[in-house]
């Protein structure tokens, strides 16, 4: 029976959802040893869904440091004879995973969409191609959060990490939190964008921004309304504004002129709401609603809030 080391991450409320999901995946591949690294993480660590949890808790581990963390993971792996290391595809996971793989001399698969004992699936070319693999040797993998069922709650033993924590010349001096509601367009996963169909600047504030907030999305705009002065240029999506590649681009009251399309056609999914059935945006949208946005947007927001 093979052993899998699962690197779990904590957040304010305990273990991150994605780590619990990966724990569920790991359980299908062998015996799971959970590993949580940080400072004052013992309580949260015990919630990790793994048969055994190793906790590396130290003052010097408060902030993520690839040199220290990778070394700890390698030591745990070597001590436990594990043949796989899994973690969530978070900013830490995607950073730590490759370094661990290099240290162990193992293969690496990052940002996997699917993972099981049958094999792994990764997105290539910005998701335009799905790449399947069935690795036979030992492997490190970071796995995207998805609709995986979360692992069963922990029911095993706890152990404190007893190995060596190396020194590192990296020194974290602070963490800056970015306020909610000002998500950067080029980094957003979801963008709610408004156009001339909104008819007035007030409607941007009453319809687009609240919907974006509900969806945890960034708010964007077409050139027409930026030119009209309804929103600042930083909101503009399109040829002369920003090029965006979110998972979901929701175009509201935007006709879809070629200059705008050039800025968002790289979106994974596009949904559009527009009263003109001939609007060019519908040719590129995956999902479209032909209708009055003044009726549809409030309904959409209410229903999303209830989810």
């Amino acid at each position: 029976m093979s052993t899998v080391v699962l690197v779990g991450e904590t957040d304010g409320n305990g273990i991150k959802d994605v780590s619990q999901q990966v724990a569920g995946v790991a359980a299908g591949m062998g015996e799971v040893i959970g590993l949580v690294i940080g400072k004052n993480v013992a309580e949260s660590a015990m919630k990790l869904a793994a048969g055994k949890v190793v906790i590396a808790d130290d003052e010097g581990l408060e902030y993520y440091d690839p040199v220290k963390y990778a070394s700890i993971v390698s030591q745990v792996v070597q001590k436990s004879d594990a043949t796989k290391v899994l973690m969530g595809a978070t900013t830490m996971g995607k950073d730590l995973g490759p370094r661990v793989a290099a240290e162990l001399g193992w293969g690496y698969l990052g940002d996997c969409l699917e993972a099981s004992s049958e094999g792994f699936v990764r997105p290539d070319f910005a998701g335009k191609v799905l790449a399947r693999s069935k690795p036979e040797g030992p492997l490190v993998a970071s796995i995207r959060n998805n609709a995986y069922p979360m692992g069963e709650s922990w029911s095993g033993s706890v152990e404190n990490f007893s190995g060596n924590i190396p020194d590192s010349t990296l020194n974290t001096i602070s963490i800056e939190k970015i306020g909610k509601g000002t998500i950067e367009l080029t980094e957003a996963n979801i963008i709610v964008s408004g156009g001339r169909g909104l008819e007035s600047p007030e409607n941007y504030e009453t319809l687009i921004r609240p919907l974006a907030a509900t969806m945890g999305a960034a708010a964007g705009a077409s050139r027409a309304i930026v030119d009209a002065g309804w929103v600042p240029h930083s909101h503009q999506v399109g040829q002369t504004g920003k090029t965006v590649t979110p998972d979901l681009y929701l175009a509201i009251g935007i006709s879809g002129a070629i200059q705008h399309l050039g800025g968002m056609s790289g979106s994974k999914f596009i949904a559009a709401i527009n009263k003109d059935p001939e609007a060019p945006i519908f040719k590129v949208a995956d999902y479209g609603i032909v209708g009055d946005l003044f009726e549809i947007v409030p309904v959409l927001k209410t229903k999303l809030e209830k989810l």
Partner: peptide
């Protein structure tokens, strides 16, 4: 030690550009 990709495929077709019908909003 890289993992070899065994097979590539295109993601399932999105059913491109579907207009969602309905009685009302």
């Amino acid at each position: 030690n890289d993992v070899q990709t065994t097979e590539c495929s295109l993601p399932p077709a999105r059913g491109g550009g579907v207009i969602l019908e309905g009685e009302g909003p």
